[in-house]
Nucleic acid binder design. Structure first.
Length: 420
DNA sequence: TCTGGGGTCCTAGGACCC
DNA sequence: TCTGGGGTCCTAGGACCC
C-alpha cells in the first residue's frame, strides 16, 4: 500500500498578505481577481461573514466597508514567490513531491512507514510555518483522493491541522459521513448523476459497481471508486510535464470597440504567452485568437468567436506569432460589438531542442533565437516590457485595473518591507 | 458603473482509409 | 425493397481542477 500526503496552504493568498503585514492577523481579508472583479480568496474571518467565493466585488463593497474587511488586488508575483518557498521547504522533508498547484503539493510517504506519520506531519507543518510564515494543513491517505479527503477534514475539524485516514476504523466513519460532492473530481454535474443513482456519501460511491459508475461518469469516475477503496490510480507525478498549450487572456479595464485597441491587446498577450513559452523551452505549432463581449451585459449584442492559424514550422518568435495572431483577429473582428476580453492561446507545443525541423529547412532558428534571447534578457534585467514589439502599442488604455495591490515584498528591491 | 485566468483529460462524432 | 466492417486520426465541447 502507498501512503500519500496532501499539503495545502490555508487561505493561501490571504496568508501571504499577512506574512508581511501582521496587523492583518485576525481580520477578515479578501483578495480580488484581475480587474478587481471577483472575490477569489478569503481568510477564515471573511468566510465567517458569509462572503462567497467567486462573487462579484461590487455587490459586496458596502458590506466590506461596514465590516472593515481588508481588500487586496491579487499580487501573483508575491504569491508565486511565497509558493516557491513553501515547496522548497517541503522538499527538505520528502524528496517525492508533486507540486500540484500554487498552494498544494502531494508527498509520497512510502519510505516513512516506520515513523509516526501524524507526528511527522505535525513537524512538517510547524517548520513550514516557522520558515515561511504560511500555515498549512496536511491530510494523509492511501491514495491521492483519500489524502485530499483527509486534508478537507484536517482543515475544518482539527486543532492540529493534520488528519490521517489510514486507520480503517476511522475511515469507515469518515467516508460514511463525507458528502459525495466534496470528493476531489466530483462537481455539480457528477453529483447530480450520482444522486439519481441514490449515491450520497463517499462510502456509497466506494462500494458502488465501478462499471456502472463508469457508464455515468466516464473512466474518471471509475477511477475515483478505486481510489476510495485505497487502490491508487493517480500516481505521484514528480516530473513536471511540459505544457501542451499556453494561454494569455485578460478582461479589459473598460469597454473596447476599436480595432486598434484590440490589436494592441492581442499583441501584448501574444508577447506575454511567447515569453512563457520560451521559458518552458518550447515552440508552438499554432496560435488561436478568441474575442468575446461581456456575457453579463445581456442587453448588449453578444458575440464570441475564435480562429486559429497553423504555422509551417514550430516557432517561438514573438514577431512572427504576433503577425499571425493579428491576421486571426482581422478575420473575426466586427466593429459593432463592445468587447470585454480577448485571448491568445499557443497550441501544440513541442520542445525547442532538436525535434522536427521544417521539411525544407526554410526556417533558420538561429537568428530568431538570438533576437528572442536578447529581448528576454533585457526584459528580465530591466523589467517586463521594457523592450517590446511596436504592435503592442504605448497607450494601452484597455489595460486592466488593479488598484489595491500590496507590495511585491520578496521580488522587487524597491518594494521591500520597511521597518522603522 | 462593476462579474478572473489558466490549465488538463475524456468522449462522441466526423473524415478518411483499406 | 435491399448498400460492410473495421480501424485511425482529428476536433469540438464538456467537465473538472485550482
Amino acid at each position: 500500500m502507498s501512503i500519500f500526503a496532501l499539503v495545502d496552504c490555508n487561505n493561501f493568498y490571504a496568508s501571504c498578505e499577512r506574512v508581511f503585514n501582521p496587523a492583518l492577523e485576525g481580520k477578515p481579508i479578501v483578495i480580488l481577481s484581475n480587474n478587481d472583479g471577483c472575490i477569489i480568496a478569503r481568510s477564515n474571518e471573511a468566510k465567517a461573514l458569509g462572503i462567497p467565493m467567486g462573487c462579484p466585488y461590487y455587490s459586496f463593497k458596502q458590506i466590506f466597508q461596514k465590516q472593515n474587511v481588508e481588500v487586496f488586488s491579487s499580487n501573483y508575483e508575491l504569491y508565486g514567490d511565497m509558493s516557491q518557498r513553501v515547496m522548497d521547504s517541503l522538499a527538505e522533508f520528502c524528496p517525492d513531491i508533486e507540486v500540484y498547484s500554487i498552494d498544494e503539493a502531494f508527498l509520497k510517504l512510502d519510505g516513512f512507514k516506520d515513523r509516526d506519520l501524524d507526528a511527522f506531519a505535525i513537524e512538517i507543518r510547524q517548520k513550514i510555518k516557522q520558515w515561511t510564515g504560511i500555515p498549512v494543513s496536511i491530510g494523509i491517505g492511501a491514495t491521492k483522493t483519500l489524502a485530499k479527503m483527509a486534508n478537507h477534514i484536517a482543515k475544518r475539524h482539527t486543532q492540529s491541522g493534520v488528519f490521517n485516514l489510514l486507520d480503517t476504523n476511522i475511515s469507515e466513519k469518515i467516508l460514511s459521513e463525507f458528502e459525495v460532492e466534496k470528493i476531489w473530481g466530483i462537481a455539480s454535474g457528477g453529483e447530480k448523476k450520482l444522486k439519481q443513482l441514490g449515491i450520497i456519501t463517499a462510502k456509497q460511491l466506494r462500494d458502488a459497481n465501478p462499471k456502472i459508475i463508469r457508464k455515468h461518469l466516464t473512466v474518471v469516475g471509475e477511477r475515483i471508486v478505486y481510489e476510495l477503496r485505497g487502490i491508487s490510480c493517480l500516481p505521484l507525478e514528480i516530473f513536471v510535464a511540459p505544457k501542451k498549450n499556453i494561454m494569455s487572456s485578460r478582461s479589459f479595464g473598460r469597454i473596447v470597440t476599436k480595432y486598434e485597441d484590440l490589436e494592441e491587446a492581442i499583441a501584448n498577450y501574444a508577447s506575454r504567452a511567447c515569453e512563457k513559452m520560451r521559458k518552458e523551452k518550447s515552440r508552438a505549432q499554432a496560435v488561436q485568437v478568441s474575442v468575446t463581449t461581456n456575457p453579463f451585459k445581456t442587453h448588449t449584442k453578444q458575440y464570441r468567436n475564435g480562429t486559429m492559424s497553423r504555422f509551417i514550422a514550430p516557432t517561438n518568435d514573438t514577431m512572427h506569432i504576433i503577425s499571425q495572431a493579428v491576421k486571426c483577429l482581422k478575420q473575426i473582428y466586427h466593429s459593432d460589438y463592445e468587447y470585454k476580453k480577448v485571448s491568445v492561446m499557443l497550441m501544440d507545443l513541442v520542445s525547442d531542442e532538436g525535434g522536427q525541423q521544417d521539411l525544407f529547412d526554410e526556417v533558420n532558428y538561429d537568428k530568431s533565437d538570438k533576437i528572442m534571447g536578447v529581448l528576454d534578457n533585457i526584459n528580465l534585467k530591466m523589467g517586463r516590457n521594457k523592450l517590446f514589439i511596436g504592435t503592442q502599442g504605448i497607450e494601452r488604455n484597455w489595460k486592466m485595473q488593479r488598484n489595491k495591490q500590496s507590495s511585491r515584498f520578496t521580488t522587487q528591491w524597491h518594494e521591500l518591507l520597511e521597518v522603522r
